[in-house]
Structures are given as structure tokens and as C-alpha cells.
């Protein structure tokens, strides 16, 4: 059952990922990315990360991607222009990608012990309480620094996006 669910969600994620790369319209790509994020949220649930799954939905799919779609709609971004590519990119690109993935899969298979399987419900530290405790004790300093980072990002976004004063 676990394996079937994994294959289902992984299949969705990979198909949406391929769609992201192949579609020439940014809105299609953005929606494919939302699909990847949804599938990944479900995989996080399977791995016992309830809080991260919810955060993935709220922050990534619910806020960041809506912002992307908003900007795409605002700029009325059209289809990408087809550009002639170099010959070797057209012929060697896909095989190289496959070779890259195969090499990574091979290394992963060789390094990892075969017994390292993941069972649903075995991992219980992913609850909001456990994460919150860890976040506000061990990782308090990085957390505070992140808030400064966000402040900088807010100021930067406002400065960049404000109207030019002549």
C-alpha cells in the first residue's frame, strides 16, 4: 500500500515536473509546479512530516505560487518564442539528462543500505509541537536571523517595485 501510494504521488510529481519544463506558456508551467508541490506535500505526509506538509501547502502552493501566477497575469506574459538551438544541445541534451539521473540513482543505490525502508506512521517527530519545540530552542538563532532576512526582502521588494519618482 505504501509503495503504491508512493508510486502514485511520485508519478504525479515527475509528470508535472516534465510538464513544467516542456510547456512553453508560463501559466502552464506555474500550474505544473503547483502540482509538483501538492504531490510532494502528500509524500511529506507519508514520511511523517505533517507540519511541513501543511507549510508546503500554505507557504509554497498557497502564497508563493499565487504570487507567481499574479505576476504572470499582470505582465500578460505570452508564449515563449521558439529559438533555434545548437545542434549538439538538441541531440545530446536528453541522453545527458538520462545519464545524469542514472548515475545519481546508481550512487544512491550503492551507498544506502537496502534495509532503509520508510513505513507510514513510524516517524512521529513531525508534529507541529515537536517542530516548534526544536525551532524555538536549538534553532532559535537561525530563526531570528531568518526574520531579519525577511525584513530585508520586504524592504528590497518595496524599493524595487515602487513607482519611479522623476
Amino acid at each position: 500500500m505504501d509503495q503504491i501510494l508512493f508510486l502514485l504521488f511520485a508519478g504525479i510529481a515527475v509528470l508535472c515536473g516534465i510538464n513544467l519544463v516542456l510547456q512553453s506558456h508560463p501559466i502552464s508551467s506555474a500550474l505544473s509546479l503547483v502540482g509538483v508541490m501538492g504531490a510532494l506535500a502528500l509524500l511529506y505526509l507519508q514520511l511523517g512530516g505533517e507540519f511541513i506538509a501543511a507549510a508546503q501547502l500554505i507557504v509554497y502552493a498557497g502564497a508563493i505560487m499565487v504570487l507567481f501566477i499574479f505576476v504572470i497575469m499582470l505582465l500578460n506574459a505570452g508564449k515563449e518564442r521558439a529559438v533555434p538551438r545548437y545542434l549538439w544541445v538538441r541531440w545530446a541534451g536528453l541522453p545527458l539528462l538520462f545519464a545524469f539521473i542514472a548515475a545519481m540513482a546508481y550512487i544512491v543505490q550503492r551507498i544506502l543500505p537496502p534495509s532503509g525502508e520508510v513505513k507510514f506512521g513510524a516517524f512521529t517527530l513531525g508534529s507541529a509541537e515537536a517542530i516548534g519545540t526544536r525551532l524555538f530552542t536549538t534553532y532559535l538563532l537561525p530563526f531570528e536571523i531568518t526574520s531579519v532576512l525577511i525584513l530585508i526582502a520586504i524592504v528590497g521588494a518595496i524599493v524595487l517595485a515602487r513607482k519611479e519618482i522623476e
Binding site: D2, A13, I101, E117, V118, F120
Partner: peptide, 12 residues
């Protein structure tokens, strides 16, 4: 096994 091998996640 019933669970999913960890390597599957890494390959994905």
C-alpha cells in the same frame, strides 16, 4: 517489505 525504500525518495 511493506514500507518504501528510502532510496526511492532520493531517486525521485
Amino acid at each position: 517489505v511493506i514500507g518504501v525504500p528510502l532510496s526511492w525518495y532520493l531517486i525521485l
